[in-house]
Design a protein around this nucleic acid. Structure first.
Lengths: 330, 330
DNA sequence: CTGAAAGCGCTTACAG
DNA sequence: CTGAAAGCGCTTACAG
């Protein structure tokens, strides 16, 4: 790979002049400039971003830490993040934790070592101290979907309203025994959904139907297992609320196996992300603007990165609202 | 952030000694070592990976370039890549091209500038020259899923066999008018699937039923549109082969809308990646070991990165076979 | 076993 | 308008 030095030699000028010409940040005589451009082109020169990063103390890279990608809303959010980051000249590093605190810790420790200027994280909830440390060390941090620390900026959806509206909607559809696939109450989105559910159930004078289990919460199996529990606990059950699409798929599978139709038990997901509309029997859900949330998260973390030290931003919290999209499963 | 220098000062030794102690790559007196460890701990020292990268000429980072993540097999493959890469001490940079040649070009140009030691790419097919250039400049490259250049290592599935077996399977099920959602013939996997389809159709003495359209090939809409075409072209159609799961979902939607059941027209996907099994009416597909393919791709590119210049590896081509998983859609 | 020096490839005050 | 020099934070032959 050709370096600045090579270009300088070929153009018969100093490296500093080459640097100035190529970066266009200082006056360079047009003739000199031309010589330099020609030399750079001839050598197929590409600046070394690592050297640049070291010198300028900026990596122009953000790290994204999420629990999973496949069949989760995070794959869509990540696309939004990457698109926005690329547009602003940043690269995107990805880490998948599978909701394992140890893996998350490992990822964060690597990212902090100069890998990135900023981090967007959907945390497991177990490494709050480390995340605060990282933030304190000068790396911008934005919490995504799961907010566990109010002193750090965040992008979330209005989970409580999602839960509340889902119950209200099902009630209007005639449902009276509405089950919630609960669990993971230590994570904000799950807690928020339950809170909304509880409030609506109470207001409408209904009874709560809850279930949870020990499987990974963001999975088909979790939905499958919990739906089975709900059915076993209440023979009059007429609706199931799943927190995420993939749980909803698990729940629908149970109903399918038992020969129960949408007319008997309705299913709704609180985290729609497009998949619901594509199913043969499409699934009603609270749709989240995943792509937009990703773009906003990237924009937010990059703004924090580029804000000079002397006027630090106070944490910002952006809440997106989900909108109910009615489909065939209810 | 504390630097080597800070640690050296606190431990009253030279930076070179600190470096040696912390990297454990040369004898350092136990007492000195202890002093250094203590100092590093006290200062919360973390080595700056950028400086390390510049000095050693290694980034310990790989770049992954794929057309899309959401609802595509690439999200699952990416999880495999990231897991394997992390285990080997590499970070993973992600770029999403949306199958746009210009975006791909932009991504590749940035990656080559010292961002990464190696690249795993599912190419659009339009930047073959650039990819060869990058490879020639010393960056390891592995082609993923879509192989467009035999001089560069690759990881693919046996697409031709997928197509062939799908037809055979449907034939045994009694289907005689088997449609293929074709298109994107400039990309190896699509071409391979069609070749297998054609061979089987010919051997069985059947007629081809093809359709394609101008939408993005890896999408729900593509499957929807093509399935409609197939139905319009042949009223006796009794099976639809989709190249990827998401096309299959689009096709199933058409059938649903027209009130056509699985008994009348069967649907099979040639690129299963778990989603098929989760549907209410689960979808038969040729399942690809996506996670494993990702892990292998990461292992392969890292091996190429770490192979010394003097004994360059010749390109390797790994072909995974997909296995037919029979479900309710056929 | 440890220190002094050079250098990875850049950028940026500082002179002139 | 351009050159010489210092330095970002590390590693690694080279002495001793």
């Amino acid at each position: 790979m050709a370096t600045l030095k090579d270009v300088a030699r070929l153009a018969c000028v100093d490296v500093s002049t080459v640097s100035r010409a190529l970066n266009n940040n200082s006056y360079v005589h047009p003739d000199t400039k031309e010589k330099i451009y020609a030399a750079a082109k001839e050598l197929g020169y590409h600046p070394n971003v690592v050297a640049k990063a070291l010198r300028q103390g900026k990596r122009h890279t953000i790290g994204v830490v999420v629990p999973r990608l496949h069949l989760a809303i995070f794959s869509e959010i990540l696309q939004g993040i990457e698109e926005e980051a690329r547009g602003r000249g940043y690269a995107t590093l990805i880490c998948v934790t599978e909701d394992d605190a140890k893996t998350e810790k490992e990822c964060l420790n690597r990212l902090r070592n100069g890998f990135v200027d900023g981090i967007i994280i959907a945390p497991t909830g177990k490494n709050g101290h480390l995340i605060r440390d990282i933030k304190a060390s000068g790396i911008a941090v934005v919490q995504l979907v799961r907010r566990q620390d109010h002193s750090i900026s965040s992008i979330v959806a209005d989970y409580e309203t999602c839960g509340y509206e889902a119950v209200t909607y099902l009630y209007e559809k005639g449902c009276r025994e509405i089950g919630l696939i609960a669990g993971a109450q230590h994570l904000e989105p799950y807690k928020g959904r339950y809170t909304g559910y509880r409030k609506a159930i109470k207001k409408l004078g209904l009874e709560e139907n809850l279930s949870e289990c020990n499987l990974p919460v963001n999975s088909f199996e979790y939905g499958y297992e919990c739906a089975n529990q709900l059915l076993a606990d209440n023979y009059a059950l007429d609706a199931i609320i799943a927190c995420v699409d993939i749980q909803g798929l698990g729940a629908r599978r149970v109903l399918k196996e038992k020969g129960i139709g949408c007319d008997q038990i309705k299913v709704i997901s609180l985290t729609g992300h497009v998949v619901g509309g594509m199913l043969r029997t499409s699934m009603t859900s609270m749709e989240m603007p995943a792509n937009e949330m990703g773009m906003k998260a990237a924009a937010m973390v990059i703004e924090e990165i580029e804000t000079p030290f002397d006027r630090k931003l106070s944490p910002r919290h952006l809440v997106f609202s989900a909108s109910l999209v009615e489909r065939e499963s209810t």
